[in-house]
Amino acid sequence: MNLTERTEITRQIAVEAGQLARDYFRQIDTLKIEKKGHQDFVSAADREVEVLVRRRLAEHFPEDAIVGEEHAPTEGSSGFTWVIDPIDGTTNFVNAIPAWVVVIAGVKNGQTCIGVIHDPCHDETFVAVRGEGARLNGHPISVPRDLTLRDGSVAVGHSNRIASEATARLVAAILNAGGLFHRNASGALSLAYVAAGRLLGYSEAHMNAWDCLAGQLLVAEAGGKVEAQDADQMIANGGRVIVGAPRVFDDLVRLYEAALVPSPSE
């Protein structure tokens, strides 16, 4: 089965999973919610949606490995690994904010080959295939090639692995450089918005693979700039994520690296 065929099946699985998640979202007042850590929630919806995605992937690709946020990894023999976030933006989800997505990425030989991000609340499906471009609901998308930091908004994620002061410095630096900052509490959705040209860039000090691999491929295939990373290493350890439009990326890296230098009092 070629990548295009795999991708279409993945898209269908993401849409089906999104329908299930949306059903839970409509009954949010009755949903059991647990707190894993500071601003880190998990619900029955997260677990059940991941079970559905895993089951569908296993039906179509029984020899592939599967890694997800909420359940233990499943080993495979094909060399192909599926990476799942059943609901990215769970804090939004549990607070009835319609800014969350289903995320599925396909990885082989250290490269993300397939990226699908489905937004059920707005009926938007972002799809990328390595070497074949990026699409939104079947239509090609691209990042703006001529816009600078002063021409739009940059999304900023926050990781509990760094001091909050560092994130605040980055936000201030973006504002001082003439840009605007945006945060919607879903890293995957923000990355999809960069690919679609709605945002000019995104940065976060540490993301897990299920949050970022699909979105990074979307940005790259839409003509944006993405830091080179080994997808297998990201699956194992996670890492920093910086992406941007061509004339924004270098400035965002510079601002990010300056902001994360700790002050003497930290």
Rank of each mutant, 00 (worst) to 15 (best):
M1Q: 03
E8G: 02
E16R: 14
E16W: 05
Q19F: 04
I28W: 06
D29C: 09
D29F: 09
K35H: 07
A44T: 09
A45I: 05
R47W: 09
E50Y: 14
V51R: 11
R56L: 03
L57S: 04
A58F: 12
F61K: 03
P62F: 15
I66D: 04
E69R: 02
P73D: 11
S77F: 08
S78I: 10
S78M: 09
D85E: 02
T90S: 12
T91P: 04
N95H: 15
N95S: 14
N95I: 08
I97C: 03
V102N: 04
V103F: 04
G106K: 09
K108E: 11
C113I: 15
V116E: 03
D123W: 02
A128H: 08
A134T: 10
N137W: 03
S142M: 09
T148C: 10
G152H: 00
G152F: 00
S159N: 02
R161I: 01
E165G: 15
A166H: 15
T167H: 04
I174E: 13
L175N: 14
N176M: 14
L189Y: 13
L191A: 04
G197A: 06
G197T: 05
G197F: 06
G201L: 00
E204C: 09
H206G: 01
M207K: 14
W210H: 09
C212E: 13
L213K: 15
G215Y: 07
Q216G: 12
L217I: 07
G224K: 12
A228S: 09
A231I: 03
A231V: 05
D232C: 08
Q233A: 11
A236K: 12
A236Y: 01
G238M: 13
V243F: 00
A245S: 12
V248K: 06
V248W: 07
V253K: 02
E257V: 09
A258S: 15
E266I: 14
